[in-house]
């Protein structure tokens, strides 16, 4: 297991979201779950906590999370990830799903 925490600069989240939290994905082989919550600090950063079963890919994680924080206004959110060896593309995909869910609620 490898654990790390980092905040990435991001434009602030819209002041109103459909729900206070959203979860996407499941913890399973080659997959991960992303919990996205309001109330991360500061309001100009996306606060990330990652726990992954496959150590040694921190650079890829940080780059993927930084890109997301750059492309989406996610400042003031707290991202917590439980990972069981998901490829980076799933990190982005699940983040997007959780983000959509947070903003717009259930489809």
């Amino acid at each position: 297991m490898e654990k790390f925490t980092k905040a990435f600069p991001s434009k602030p989240l819209p002041s109103k979201t459909a729900s206070p939290w959203a979860l996407a994905g499941v913890v399973g082989s080659g997959n991960l779950e992303v919990l996205l919550e309001r109330g991360g600090r500061p309001a100009t950063a996306m606060e990330c906590h990652v726990e992954t079963s496959i150590p040694g890919y921190k650079a890829a994680w940080l780059a993927a999370l930084a890109d997301f924080a750059h492309h989406y206004p996610a400042g003031g959110t707290k991202v917590t990830i439980n990972d069981q060896g998901a490829p980076p593309v799933l990190v982005t995909l699940r983040l997007r799903q959780a983000y959509d869910h947070l903003i717009k609620g259930d489809k």
Binding site: V27, T52, S53, T80
Partner: peptide, 8 residues
């Protein structure tokens, strides 16, 4: 404790 990923 066993180093297995947990789920919320």
């Amino acid at each position: 404790q066993l180093g297995i990923p947990v789920s919320f």
